[in-house]
Measured scan of single mutants.
Amino acid sequence: MAEQVALSRTQVCGILREELFQGDAFHQSDTHIFIIMGASGDLAKKKIYPTIWWLFRDGLLPENTFIVGYARSRLTVADIRKQSEPFFKATPEEKLKLEDFFARNSYVAGQYDDAASYQRLNSHMNALHLGSQANRLFYLALPPTVYEAVTKNIHESCMSQIGWNRIIVEKPFGRDLQSSDRLSNHISSLFREDQIYRIDHYLGKEMVQNLMVLRFANRIFGPIWNRDNIACVILTFKEPFGTEGRGGYFDEFGIIRDVMQNHLLQMLCLVAMEKPASTNSDDVRDEKVKVLKCISEVQANNVVLGQYVGNPDGEGEATKGYLDDPTVPRGSTTATFAAVVLYVENERWDGVPFILRCGKALNERKAEVRLQFHDVAGDIFHQQCKRNELVIRVQPNEAVYTKMMTKKPGMFFNPEESELDLTYGNRYKNVKLPDAYERLILDVFCGSQMHFVRSDELREAWRIFTPLLHQIELEKPKPIPYIYGSRGPTEADELMKRVGFQYEGTYKWVNP
């Protein structure tokens, strides 16, 4: 592979701008107003304001973009700056750019259920340069409990009458099928589907988006991507930290609602779906819905739930269990780990287990898709061969690698495990991989909904998990304890083995 010439960040961002501006969906010269509902909250200060700053800094926003914060707290732009700027990672050389960014910011205080507050917000936006005809993007960085009041008031008082209007809704989209349907029906009564952007930030990850290209742009994968060759698929999300004093919020939802029903299920769809007619948003989402419709409700015998306990040999936070978090209700049975087996009941995947695993306070930070292939028929190497695996590593250190057998150097035919490896950090030294939120917010500006969740996708996802969630809430089974920093409950490994996964433990990928 030829040595790549190092590029400056300015040059890299210039390439990104060229890609972005050559499309006809990006209205570079139009006025846009980006409204952050819930501007005083954690999500706004840690993710949304920093993301908008990065896009502005790199010249990736339309030229005439204004940012308006809205929340109940009586704040000023200076207050917003004070709480969000520490997350910007701005350099001293960017000081003038930073001043320009905050000059485009404003803030309006108001209630979430008060019509007069929204009329005041609308008047404020109209007073901005060309504000009355601007395109408006409303980001709901809010708890779902206020979605209905907020969307109703936005629709009645704050819509642009000339430009387009788009609304970005953060997960969780309800707690179960019934609450999700209620919320979807409410929002759909106010906005068209092409105006609604239900954001799952995992769909903005580079390697998640790469799944489609790997599958449908490489001839070698087509013939082997089926039940005849693939023994099982494992989708993993692991965090090495616990709730760390923020367990009160987590306890309301648990690990299945927080990660599995959305992030992991979306990745499953991209692995299992048929080739779409095109890369058009609805063509892709149509195929994802077909996959979900082929999955039956989760069966309790295919589920393992766990909850982390303190590690007596650990240090600091590792010595504390979930129930030691003062914000967690006493005696909570909320799971911090889950392993679930699903089956896609169609011709391509009949009988292939899709194993979804996620948890907190585990032994490493990792998100990946792992396809394990069947054993080689007619073994001539005296059971020395391990199964081939194709691994798409989402985070950290984005990579695609194939675990395969090669001859060990020497005189004899002794096979050993090795890999074919594409590590993004080595291959793409001159490429700026956008943060997931950067990519998705740019998608909203461009009107691309491919990486957002459609209402029928959402409904099918909740259909699969709601009976299990209701059973857990009714019966309150005690989750299996696992030690902070471990791989999780051993019962999860036993479940995976029972459905056909072979864990060798003899080879570990190392970032080159």
Rank of each mutant, 00 (worst) to 15 (best):
I199E: 02
I36Y: 01
T236Y: 05
N165S: 12
N185D: 15
S160K: 09
G245I: 03
L43V: 12
H124D: 11
E148K: 15
F250V: 05
I162L: 15
R74C: 13
R57V: 04
P50E: 02
T236N: 11
S180G: 07
D228G: 13
R246V: 01
G131W: 07
G131A: 14
D100E: 14
K205Y: 06
A134D: 15
T51Y: 08
F88I: 14
G23F: 08
R120K: 11
G163H: 14
I162S: 10
F138W: 12
P62Q: 07
E252A: 10
E94Y: 05
A6P: 07
A231N: 10
L214P: 00
E148H: 13
R215Y: 02
N122W: 14
K152D: 07
T243P: 05
A217K: 01
N185Q: 15
R74V: 15
E156A: 11
A103D: 14
E170Y: 00
Q22W: 11
F216I: 00
I168N: 05
I167M: 13
M207P: 05
K152P: 04
L98N: 05
L177V: 13
Q161E: 14
S180T: 04
R219Y: 06
N229H: 10
V169M: 11
H155C: 07
L203Q: 04
S180N: 06
I80Y: 10
V233E: 03
E170M: 01
F250W: 06
R215H: 03
N105L: 12
F56I: 10
A71E: 03
S184K: 04
N64I: 05
E252T: 11
V146M: 04
P144W: 02
A134R: 14
A134V: 12
L7M: 15
I35Y: 03
T91Q: 13
P86G: 06
F26A: 11
E85A: 13
G59P: 00
R81H: 06
T10E: 14
Q22L: 07
P223V: 06
M37A: 09
L98F: 04
C158Y: 10
E244P: 14
I48S: 02
Y249D: 00
S123I: 11
M125A: 14
D42S: 05
S106V: 09
R166F: 01
F34V: 11
F26H: 15
G14N: 15
N122D: 10
I256P: 02
R136H: 12
N105T: 10
